Amino acid sequence: MNILLAEDDLQLGELIGFMLKKKGGCKVDWVMEGEDAYDYAKASHYEVLILDWMMPNGDGISVCRKLRSEGYAGAILMLTAKDAVEDRINGLDAGADDYLIKSFEIDELLARLRALTRRNYAPILEDQISIQGLAINRTSQTVSQEKEEIQFSPREFQLLDLLVQNKGQVLPREVILDRIWGFDAEVSTKTIDATIKLIRKKLGRFGKQDLLQSIRGVGYKVES
């Protein structure tokens, strides 16, 4: 289960992330601010978002409401110390699918996550997508134009696919690094730049080396 955890309490965030991985076998991305939660949710595919109500730079309610207003269809669970009925109603009205009050047992959290994923919120990615005359095949990890086909390495293809999925949006290097290599990976953002260079070189065979745009000081994007 792929989870985004947005929790600004350092000790609680570490504990929840650790237990979700240990007891639930989950893959967990952990952020501590609302803006990061929004960026990660838009940039990646998660089966469930766990949003803390109170966070700096955008509380969980605001993030939830903004995502829903933009058509986000994934499952969202609100995590909060607020236990008044009115607060629960506000959370659900903002678009949350479930609501868990602190303090809680990790087994209950896991049970709620399993229930949410059974509802099949996760969007299904098409096996093949097209952009600027290119056909991108997720099964074969190839890019083709008419009858010519280029094979990409798994890492190259994951990066290209991530940017295409989020076409029109700038993905910061930190987000790309976490989604493709993992938060704990011992690689630097220079690795991203090197991989982008290799992708562009291959796309150059189709005259599409400018498909991936560099945003100075931030990251990369594919124009929609």
Rank of each mutant, 00 (worst) to 15 (best):
D59C: 13
E126T: 10
L160A: 14
L113Y: 08
S103W: 02
Q145F: 09
L51N: 11
E149H: 00
T142H: 07
Y46I: 13
D98Q: 01
E33L: 04
S144A: 14
K66L: 10
Y99F: 12
H45A: 03
E70S: 15
N137L: 04
D36V: 00
L49M: 08
I129D: 01
D87E: 05
I61S: 07
D83E: 12
I50Q: 02
D98N: 10
K27T: 11
I136Y: 06
L92H: 02
Y121K: 07
R138G: 13
C64Q: 06
H45M: 07
P56G: 08
S44P: 01
W53Y: 09
Y72M: 15
L163E: 07
N57Q: 14
M54E: 14
D127N: 08
I129Q: 08
Y99L: 03
S144M: 03
R112P: 07
L77Q: 06
Q128G: 03
V28K: 01
A122F: 08
E148M: 13
R138K: 03
G95M: 03
A94R: 01
Q158R: 05
D83C: 04
E108I: 01
E35M: 00
G34I: 04
E86D: 05
A111I: 02
E70M: 13
V164F: 06
N57P: 03
T142R: 00
V85R: 06
E33Q: 07
R65T: 05
L100C: 05
Y121R: 02
S140C: 01
K42P: 09
E70I: 13
A115T: 12
R112E: 13
E35C: 00
A115I: 03
I150E: 15
M78I: 07
K102G: 10
V48Y: 08
R119A: 11
W53R: 06
S140P: 00
A75T: 15
A135G: 05
Q169W: 01
R119G: 02
R68G: 14
R155D: 10
L79T: 01
D39S: 07
L100T: 01
E47D: 14
G34A: 11
Q145T: 06
D29E: 05
R138P: 10
Q145H: 13
L51H: 11
A37H: 00
